[in-house]
Design a protein around this nucleic acid. Sequence first.
DNA 1: GAACCGGTTGGAAACGTTTCCAGCGGATTG
DNA 2: CAATCCGCTGGAAACGTTTCCAACCGGTTC
Lengths: 343, 343
Amino acid sequence: MTSTRATLMQVAERAGVSLASTSRALHGTGASKAMVERVRAAAAELGYSADAIGRSLRMKKTSQIAFAVADIGNPVYVEMMRGIHEVLAPHGYRVVVMTTGDTATSATELVRSLNSGFVDGMILIPLRTDDRLITEIRRAPVPVVVIGRALSEHGVSSVSTDSAAGIGQAVRHVRSRGRRRIGFLNGPLDTTPGAARQRGFDAAVRADGFTADRVETEVADDFTVAAGLAAARRLFSRGAGRAERLDAVVAANDLLAIGAIRAAREAGLSVPDDVAVTGMDDTELGRVFLPSLTSVSLGSAERGHAAAGLMLGLTDDPDQPARQVAVGPELIARESTADGSPR
Amino acid sequence: MTSTRATLMQVAERAGVSLASTSRALHGTGASKAMVERVRAAAAELGYSADAIGRSLRMKKTSQIAFAVADIGNPVYVEMMRGIHEVLAPHGYRVVVMTTGDTATSATELVRSLNSGFVDGMILIPLRTDDRLITEIRRAPVPVVVIGRALSEHGVSSVSTDSAAGIGQAVRHVRSRGRRRIGFLNGPLDTTPGAARQRGFDAAVRADGFTADRVETEVADDFTVAAGLAAARRLFSRGAGRAERLDAVVAANDLLAIGAIRAAREAGLSVPDDVAVTGMDDTELGRVFLPSLTSVSLGSAERGHAAAGLMLGLTDDPDQPARQVAVGPELIARESTADGSPR
DNA sequence: GAACCGGTTGGAAACGTTTCCAGCGGATTG
DNA sequence: CAATCCGCTGGAAACGTTTCCAACCGGTTC
């Protein structure tokens, strides 16, 4: 534990050759066969391993990419991180996790911290995207790829998904299952996903000719099961006075959807017989739930892959034009919206 | 994006003072008030931010800790990472994620990679703990904290939990609920957790006076829902021929437990009325499941906290003696083992 | 035989930072 | 007034690596 690591200088001395030759021999370029063998032996004897910091300083390259996100606990982010890691690791990049959550740091501050140059790039998932954040991204010293809203007009590389269209798919899906009164369970409207999904829902019900009395919207405090449960209780009790009950709940999130299923059970309603429920994100949680959850996949792993791919391109050539990748939403029907005998 | 970052040298020139004074002024020690003001102004004008690599090289400190794990997707590891991050971030440490999963790197290789000195320490969760790994840890140039088995005899700092005792708690719990025939759904026996939990189960049923014909064990290929489902199917069909049915399944894992619940449902069995199910790890997944899952908490977040705490101590003084922390298992009773009318 | 050339080698600089050391000035003390 | 000391400053070294540049050597070509 206290053993001190061997340095290139020591290898050079041991091999009895110059520092320069030692570096070349190990790196494999422009060294004679005898030299390579000699240096290799010395390095092996000393258990030499090149120092990452020294190399970074010289090469101006850290081989690290930051993954910055509000809360690492969120299963969607976890899946993205996995996807990112899968793509980046084979290229020799390490992934540094950063979060805005526990300390009160904002996404803007995280981007600003890039000025200390500890990573070669950052993949960022901001909850809100304001002008300050955009300008900070544009003046960042290393490439930043944003997962979330498409940011083509700002010259920022981004991976987006049309979650508004995804909500539309969910609405049409429950509609095709014969549901007539739809509740929409959304998360905070001042977040990027919350705003987009609200837009999507409003547009979908309008296009589908729903009248206002056949639609309820309830906003949860957060994108969590607990907040979803509380909001879904309100949703069901609101509808209680009316003639027709809600027979479908479209949730902005798998976690909110699980909350809705729990609330339905509390209210003595069966899922999917009395009320169909859809989520969004297609998480493991929803896949293994009972009933398994119909969910709109936003391709978390795929978005992670795409973001990492963009990042690799940008680290190769930081001055190439910003690119946008869009990943299409896809509804995956499961038990929670199965045909039953809706009242 | 292409703007080049200001260096300390440039700040010094702009302020018209020496490099040494500039560093001191920004660092806050042994500089006159006038000097501090002058340098601060120059730094602000240039938007200076100290380079992390240069600093690391000089200070021999990277301010990074590695978190190495088989598979980042596992919810238990995610919770630990969150706990680790919570403790480390306020101390200025970044967390680097490493995995043995996607590439075929072993835990031993990950530890060996510490020789390149890109982190100040590593928190490691090995699936298997063999002698090669232990020796590699002991000769690592930076502190390594292992989460898993207690490793006191090897002089390695570790955070452990008594999962064997935890399985015992689960067995006694279902016993106290009046269950008489228990199935044990374990994961691979050649993994550290698999072996420990098997030991715990065998000891518990022996202590509780179960006869061999009232106990079934089935081993899943992996600690996943899918593997658990497959293994649980075998478990239930094995018992089908016998006089008495299984009326409880103790699973080595929440994921396996969910698989068991799904298999039970397939077999037309109700949980908990026909068969009680317990998991282990107390994951979010189990908490929100329907029925909510009785689970033995191994304190994932708490273990993360503890490991990070040990790490902080070791980075302060790498030569302090290795310490061990044990986190006690705790059974959390929920619906999946509620009293019903067991046959 | 002289000029040249390709293949190797070593010296030295550079990346950006912190800190040791010496020096300088002014102030305090005898 | 001289000696001492303290606070502050600048020069320079060091951390470990890669790579530019000059030099060397053997062999080939004119």
